[in-house]
Design a binder for these strands. Structure first.
Length: 294
DNA sequence: AAATCCCGCAACCGCCTTACG
DNA sequence: TCGTAAGGCGGTTGCGGGATT
């Protein structure tokens, strides 16, 4: 007797999500929390598999998801963590606030792999690639590019040193790293302390040691420079109000006017977020484009 | 201008792990 | 302790859009 499918697949919709579906899903989660994913689609009025809903929420709709290209700093962190952890994307993602495993995995496959190869580093082993043979006319067979897989995890510690030499100056694993960390989603606490992601790179942090942020301590920052940060995938825009400014608050408004149907829905979204997390409300601070729970 | 190729990313699939009765 | 259900994870696929011919 085989395993039961995660859901009854007959009549279920697949493929890209529509704005309407997104709205239904968000509405439901904000009102009811992340209950059983299996029954969620039915309750939310969605013709989707529970898994699909979970994925859509965690990879895209979750309000703390940071979007847009990874910064130099984040990229370097991914490389370092990959050298230590291998393809454990979720573990890697847990070190990068606001980034999802799927996003990191995609970024690795599309960008970082190429970059490393350009730098002469094998993305699999993080060891230097053998120099290419002199005649450039013949194509290098892939098997030649991949050094033997005899590398062990223990070996990878040795690799980390030469790897660090390829870190761009602005992303060095010391103070400059921390400087560029400003591009990342900031996780602040009400006590005024700022979570220092640089510590992760220095190797003095493990996954289990990531500080647990109490719901009342969460500040969602919309990082100013990266305007792709909040770009929704929804192809159907529902409003056309004047969007476009450089301030984080305006960016956030852009996001809302594009994705969220209207301002009422926007308010409900974040008030509901408070409910979702701690049964309380919250407030969007337009000064610094952050959402504070209360 | 049209056709084709290539790339990036969202979403799916299937296996593994965990929780629970 | 075992069996089952649900969630989580990593690999893969396929579509859309931009680049190239």
């Amino acid at each position: 007797m085989g395993r039961q499918p995660c859901c009854d697949k007959v009549g279920l919709k697949k493929g890209p999500w529509t704005c309407d579906e997104d709205k239904k899903l968000i509405n439901f989660i904000l009102n009811n929390g992340q209950c059983c994913w299996r029954s969620l689609p039915k309750l939310a009025g969605l013709l989707r598999c529970g898994k699909s809903c979970r994925l859509r929420w965690t990879n895209y709709l979750r309000p703390d998801v940071k979007r847009g290209l990874l910064s130099e700093y984040e990229e370097q962190m991914v490389i370092d963590l990959h050298a230590k952890l291998g393809n454990r994307w979720s573990k890697i993602a847990s070190h990068l606030p606001g980034r999802t495993d799927n996003e990191i995995k995609n970024h690795w496959n599309t960008h970082i792999k190429k970059k490393l190869k350009k730098l002469g580093i094998d993305p699999l082993t993080h060891k230097p690639l053998p120099p290419p043979p002199p005649p450039p006319t013949t194509d290098q067979p892939p098997s030649d590019q991949e050094p033997a897989l005899e590398t062990t995890m223990a070996d990878q510690n040795i690799v980390e040193e030469p790897l660090a030499k390829n870190i761009p100056a602005e992303a060095g694993p010391t103070t400059s790293l921390f400087e560029s960390a400003k591009d990342c989603t900031e996780v602040k606490t009400t006590a005024g302390s700022t979570f220092d992601p640089a510590g992760l790179v220095n190797g003095d942090f493990c996954v289990d040691e990531i500080p647990i942020i109490e719901p009342h301590e969460i500040l969602i920052s919309c990082g100013g420079a990266d305007d792709s940060l909040l770009t929704p995938s929804c192809s159907t825009t529902t409003t056309t109000s004047s969007c476009s400014s450089d301030s984080p608050a305006a960016l956030f408004d852009d996001y809302c006017c594009e994705m969220m149907i209207d301002n009422i829905w926007f308010d409900e979204y974040f008030n509901g977020l408070g409910l979702l997390i701690n049964g309380d409300g919250g407030q969007f601070n337009t000064d610094n484009a952050s959402f504070e729970l209360f």
